[in-house]
């Protein structure tokens, strides 16, 4: 059963200059469409990964899922409740308690003036729950020791801090955890420890993850299903083996080809052409067409709808 259902999700940011500047410079308002008509579902107890380069809208989607941003259009349903439009506050509250988030920077996401115990139990304490001994239990579950509860965040290394963030996310016994680049700030060996911990906890607690990452290797290792984003649009969705062995969308193919490989000694990569276009003024039709090696006329005119090819869903006119 799907725990999360995202339908036709869009988010527009107003990036206009202040009105006085607009009047003087005779400019109109400008808008940035960070996420555009995205659909996907996350099955219960699975890991869904969103990959994409910077500006592809992956973090915006994550923030809309946890309710830090409201969707401009479309909806996010979690356990059948549409958080942005549901009127019944009690139902919203109940679902909210099932969602937690882990952020990228473990240095910025822990309050330096709070003791680790207070940080970890905060999600429970805020709702008036019982917190005695909770922090100690969680610290041991994430591989730290119970004595660490009395310390401050600065006494820990980056990897240990990320464990504290994970403990905090687990405190309210959530079903869904949105992990926004959880290991990007960590070294490889520490990354391995944190990813292993996340896999273990998923099994122990029956968690569902939305993993947001730009690192294809991490995604390949962790995900059950992967969505590839380009300029706020979902261009391809598949399970890891299919995606990495047989990518359908030209953008995914380019991304996989460009990613450095450990066995790519002296590999001559033909580097991809161009860069991500300005999202304020995205190309017409398929957003990838100016960089696409197989683009045809239809790609400039019409935006491709996602369609199924085997188990893959791909938004491309020409993929086969």
């Amino acid at each position: 059963m799907a725990l999360v259902r995202v339908q036709n999700l869009s988010r527009v940011f107003d990036v206009s200059k202040p009105w006085l500047n607009r009047v003087i410079e005779r400019r109109s308002k400008s808008f940035l469409k960070a996420v555009s008509e995205v659909d996907f579902e996350i099955a219960e107890r699975s890991t869904y990964a969103l990959v994409g380069e910077s500006g592809s809208g992956k973090s915006t989607i994550g923030r809309m899922l946890v309710g830090l941003l409201t969707p401009t259009e479309g909806n996010v349903e979690i356990e059948g409740v549409d958080l942005a439009h549901e009127r019944d506050a009690a139902r919203v509250e109940a679902v909210r308690a099932d969602i937690q988030m882990i952020f990228q920077d473990p240095y910025a996401s822990l309050n330096p003036r709070w003791r680790v115990r207070d940080i970890i139990v905060e999600p429970v304490a805020a709702k008036g729950g019982e917190t005695k001994g909770l922090a100690e239990k969680l610290l041991e579950q994430v591989g730290l020791s119970a004595q660490d509860a009395g310390k401050f965040p600065h006494e820990f290394s980056g990897g240990q801090r990320q464990r504290i963030c994970i403990a905090r996310a687990l405190a309210s016994e959530p079903k869904l955890i949105v992990c926004d680049e959880p290991t990007s700030a960590l070294d490889v060996s520490v990354q391995a420890q944190v990813l292993n911990l996340m896999s273990d906890l998923k099994d122990d607690f029956g968690l569902t993850y939305l993993l947001i990452s730009h690192d294809l290797t991490v995604v390949q290792h962790m995900a059950d299903r992967i969505g590839v984003l380009y300029l706020g649009r979902l261009v391809e969705e598949a399970d890891p083996d299919t995606l990495f062995d047989d990518a359908k969308h030209p953008y995914t193919q380019m991304l996989l080809e460009a990613a450095p490989r450990m066995d790519g000694f002296g590999r001559e990569v033909v580097p991809p052409e161009g860069e991500i276009p300005n999202p304020i003024d995205p190309p017409s039709g398929c957003a990838f067409h100016p960089r696409c090696p197989i683009a045809q006329q239809i790609c400039q005119r019409e935006r491709p709808r996602p369609r199924s090819l085997g188990t893959t869903r791909v938004a491309c006119h020409l993929a086969e």
Partner: peptide, 24 residues
């Protein structure tokens, strides 16, 4: 060896990543 083996790339198809215990 530990460093190379703990990259997700080297552990393709394995359930767990190789781990170096402890920290620098």
């Amino acid at each position: 060896h530990g460093l190379m083996a703990s990259t997700p790339l080297a552990s393709r198809g394995k359930a767990r990543l190789h781990q170096i215990p402890g920290a620098m």
